[in-house]
Design a protein around this nucleic acid. Structure first.
Length: 906
RNA sequence: GGGCGAUUGGCUCAGCUGGUUAGAGCGCACGGUUCACAUCCGUGAGGUCACUGGUUCGAAUCCAGUAUCGCCCACCA
């Protein structure tokens, strides 16, 4: 670390861009991010395994939000002395990585094909080495206190082994199998994709109606008899193996059992009845293409139809398509339609809204494709995963996502885990020439075929790799050493909170639950915290194409990571989207600035010499400490309940509206009093500094940089205030102090009174700089005592030369009511007139209010509401009546004033 | 076709298990050159809590329905 001078003051302006990296460096050097070598005695576990960002990705606001939420929780628990681990990682993201590398290869004049598997993978690893640290670097800039010594990668050795072992166990348990099924195929990525990666949306299409001529006895088409089918995909016609109608559809009843002839190639198609067909749709007759449509596949299976594959892996028509063999699917569509039109068999076409699935990665229209694939049998896994949530062993926040989770789990399909890509974990299955399958978790592969004992040399490994989410699903424990029972696994598993966007609840959270329970017999985390999407100010999703993307790092450069963190976290609510506006960002920046300046004042106000504190604490001192106690309690509770916006808001309000607005101002007055002794000054300053220290501790998880920077100076200036704790990141979370209800109540009245005086001055258009004489007649003995103690504050903060009269002193007509008694302001006749009028209005209002409460108390409310609530209303009525009595009393008194009966208005 | 969520001052959002006069930030109006901060300070205006009905002594809050917006799931070619 560079040696810097050690200033005892803070710079006039907080320069986040300069301070933040320096502070981060200090944290790194302190080792604060890494858990102690052994678990501290009695410490509770708090562990978050970071959702690994894609290795190829640039940091976006979603990552930033995740990092901030997790960092706040980790810092909080670290300060509490819990056994804390936050483990970072990156995901190898098969398809996404391939996508990016393909582009790079294209620039280099190469391609996947030109390189071949081996050289391609070498190139990929080189690419990984170049980009792997990128996202971590960005997280460091955000202030994320991740334990970088435990950095993991879903393609590292540990993950690879976990993948093999998990798959072997699934295979042995009969939960992994290989079979033929219709899967989603992306013709551009040339791989299977999961249901989740197949993004469906309404699109405009065309519905064609086509005549299929009935077959005559010799199999030739009858030119005069036909059945008209409706289709949106004429090009799949070559894969038709039947025509289906509804069993109860009388229009076609006579045709069921006959055959139609497929145009172009003359295949004979049985006309079958199937309940799945909608009579109302199209013509009520549908061509059945089992190899290229999920519905038709089911029909085909029910009726034992042949399944004819007409597309190759790039969705070009195969030899099955006769004259159209080799055509692209969309060219073929046009060609088929044109040919049918020419032959007169195209009956009609009309525009049609339909749902089209596109590849999540490349937006290419997904093609259902019949192929032999590896599957995970998910039903039994899903059962357990649902039970965990139902029985509260894992809690989902917000709770309503439980329904979404259950619904998905209940309707889950088997998971097609194979991908026809190169970059990823290769499925550890070997085939022998006799068709036997051997699955092993041994990296080198099996010695021999499990079934027939053929030697390894004759076995051939599966070329498919796993869906990226398979290794991601093992993440919470593969990162801790599983399948070995490592000390880390023992100490840190299961983890505490899984924080991620609700948009990957199924992709990832659901799979971690299923695989976690299967592999480790325990839920991988206790709480799933789902955050929403960060949108632009108009509620639009951010996207590169819209050009409305906010780059977190740019924001950090401009206003600092703390400010961004404040903006994002104060707007977050689990499960809900938020809009990020300039105003919110400025709010964050302003708050760091406010803190900085408050601290700057505190540091500069330190009296010299510092001596033994002396004297009793003032009302503001007692008040602020009591308030800090309450805020500490609330902030702690908010954090325990994962209400982060609540936590930030609580401390923000306290710091700004109570500490800065009132206590700081009150303390200034005490520190500047001529008659204050050094001991008293020391005491007041200590209160100032200690409460500031309390605020810094409370705020550190939310605004780690600015609080740490202020802390450093505070510690240098007065280590007693920081209790000798040099670094805030490892300082103790504050304990809840004692409350002082009397002080809180009294100070509240002092504040109200001050406000009322300011308000009155403004209404009377008194110049802000002008000091006026004000006499306050205390409303009660208590108020009298409070007034005498608070006189300097009320005076100074309202620019009043204050005189305090005891209760019962005469109250002139132009006195104004305040929380502590009547205030008589030195005034001109016009001003007096104004105050008198003002009080007429007040009197009317008061009378109305009293009427309302009386009516309420006369109603059933009095007998049916809980006694406590009724009592509150009674108390309120008494206070209103007392105030009214005070007003009346005042009016009864001649202007000269004289003593009268005391009334307790306080 | 199912399901979920939202609807609170001009804008963005808080309002827990129903309980006084519904809060905040931004914006707006007025005022502020003193020793933390104009990235600030002070004062103020502004809300039939989407609508209809119900439960209740009492509803922004609970229930039912309606409307609008958004999202998720789904096998009408």
């Amino acid at each position: 670390m560079t040696t810097t001078s050690a200033p005892r003051e803070l710079a006039p302006r907080y320069d986040a861009a300069a301070v933040e990296p320096r502070i981060y460096q200090r944290w790194m050097e302190s080792g604060a991010f890494t858990p102690a070598p052994t678990k501290p005695e009695g410490a509770e576990r708090f562990v978050i395994i970071q959702p690994p960002p894609n290795v190829t990705g640039a940091l976006h606001l979603g990552h930033a939000l995740t990092a901030f939420v997790e960092d706040i929780l980790i810092r909080y628990h670290r300060m509490r002395g819990d056994d804390t681990l936050w483990l970072p990682g990156v995901d190898h993201a098969s398809i996404a990585a391939q996508f990016v590398l393909d582009r790079i290869l294209a620039e280099e004049g190469e391609s996947r094909q030109s390189l071949g598997r081996e050289r391609y993978l070498e190139r990929m690893w080189r690419f990984m080495d170049e980009t792997r640290d990128f996202i971590g670097e960005q997280h460091r800039r955000l202030g994320a206190s991740l334990d970088w010594t435990r950095m993991r990668f879903t393609m590292d050795e540990g993950s690879a082994r976990a993948v093999r072992v998990a798959f072997k166990r699934l295979w042995d348990a009969g939960l992994a199998y290989r079979g033929e099924a219709l899967v989603n195929w992306c013709p551009r990525c040339r791989t299977t994709i999961s249901d989740l990666e197949n993004i469906k949306a309404e699109e405009a299409g065309t519905l064609w109606t086509i005549r299929y001529h009935l077959a005559r006895a010799d199999g030739s088409p009858d030119p005069d008899a036909w059945i008209t089918v409706a289709t949106t995909r004429p090009e799949t016609l070559f894969g038709d193996t039947a025509v289906a109608v509804h069993p109860d559809d009388e229009r076609y009843a006579s045709l069921v059992g006959r055959e139609a002839v497929l145009p172009f190639i003359g295949r004979r198609l049985p006309i079958i009845a199937d309940g799945h067909v909608e009579r109302e749709f199209g013509t009520g007759a549908v061509k059945v293409t089992p190899a290229h449509d999920f519905d038709d596949y089911e029909i085909g299976r029910r009726h034992g139809l042949p399944m004819v594959n007409v597309f190759d892996e790039e969705a070009r028509l195969t030899e099955e398509a006769g004259p159209f063999a080799g055509w692209d699917r969309y060219d073929a569509r046009k060609g088929v339609v044109a040919a049918l039109a020419e032959s007169g068999d195209l009956e009609g076409e009309r525009p049609h809204q339909m749902v089209i699935g596109r590849c999540d990665r490349c937006r290419t229209v997904v093609e259902p494709r019949l192929s032999v694939q590896w599957f995970i049998r998910t039903k039994p896994l899903a059962e357990r995963a649902m039970a965990s949530v139902r029985e509260r062993r894992t809690r989902i926040m917000p709770a309503h996502f439980e329904k979404v989770y259950n619904h998905w789990m209940e309707n889950i399909h088997d998971w097609a885990v194979g991908r026809q890509l190169w970059w990823g974990h290769r499925i550890p299955a070997w085939y022998c020439p006799d068709g036997h399958i051997t699955v092993t978790d041994v990296e080198a592969g099996p010695d021999a075929c499990d079934e027939c004992g053929r030697p390894a040399a004759e076995l051939r490994q599966e070329t498919d790799i796993f869906d990226t989410w398979f290794s991601s699903g093992l993440w919470p424990f593969s990162t801790l050493g599983w399948p070995d029972r490592t000390p880390d696994l023992e100490r840190f598993y299961p983890t505490s909170v899984m924080e991620t966007g609700y948009d990957i609840l199924f992709f990832w959270v659901a799979r971690m639950m299923m695989l976690g329970l299967f592999c480790t017999d325990v839920e991988p985390f206790h709480t799933v915290y789902l955050h929403g999407i960060v949108r632009d100010p108009y509620g639009q999703k951010m996207s590169k194409t819209k050009g409305n993307v906010v780059d977190p790092l740019q924001v950090v450069e401009e206003i600092g990571a703390d400010a961004l963190r404040f903006a994002l976290v104060s707007g977050t609510s689990p499960g809900s989207d938020q809009r990020l506006t300039q105003a919110r960002l400025e709010g964050g920046r302003n708050f760091t600035n406010k803190l900085w300046n408050a601290a700057r004042f505190v540091l500069s106000a330190r009296p010299e010499p510092m001596v033994e504190p002396a004297g009793e604490p003032t009302l503001p001192e007692r008040w602020i400490r009591s308030r800090l106690a309450e805020v500490t309690e609330r902030a702690t509770r908010d954090l325990d309940e994962l209400d982060l916006a609540g936590y930030v808001g609580t401390v923000y309000d306290f710091a700004w509206s109570e500490y800065c607005d009132w206590f700081l101002e009150a303390a200034k007055i005490d520190l500047r009093r001529q008659d204050a002794s050094p001991g008293e000054r020391t005491r007041v300053w200590r209160s100032l500094a200690e409460v500031l220290a309390g605020v810094l501790r409370l705020l550190h998880p939310a605004l780690p940089f600015v609080t740490e920077e202020i802390w450093a100076t505070l510690h240098r200036v007065d280590p007693e205030v920081t209790r000798g704790e040099e670094l805030l990141i490892t300082a103790a979370w504050p304990a809840v102090g004692a409350r002082d209800a009397a002080a809180e109540e009294a100070m509240e009245r002092v504040i109200s009174t001050t406000r009322e005086l300011r308000n009155l001055r403004q209404e009377l258009e008194i110049q802000p700089a002008e000091w006026r004489a004000v006499t306050i007649v205390a409303g009660s003995a208590t108020a009298d005592a409070v007034l005498r103690e608070a006189e300097p504050y009320i005076s100074d903060l309202s620019r009043s030369k204050l005189t305090i009269n005891p209760p019962g002193t005469g109250i002139p007509e132009h006195a104004a009511g305040t929380a502590l008694g009547f205030a008589v302001i030195e005034a001109s006749d016009a001003e007096r007139r104004y105050v008198v009028d003002r009080h007429e209005r007040e009197r009317t209002e008061l009378t109305e209010q009293i009427e309302r409460v009386r009516a309420l108390l006369a109603s059933e409310f009095a007998t049916k509401a809980p006694p406590q609530v009724v009592q509150r209303e009674r108390d309120r009525l008494a206070e209103l009546e007392a105030r009214l009595a005070g007003l009346d009393e005042k009016r009864a008194i001649p202007r000269s004033g004289y003593s009268s009966r005391a009334t307790d208005r306080c």
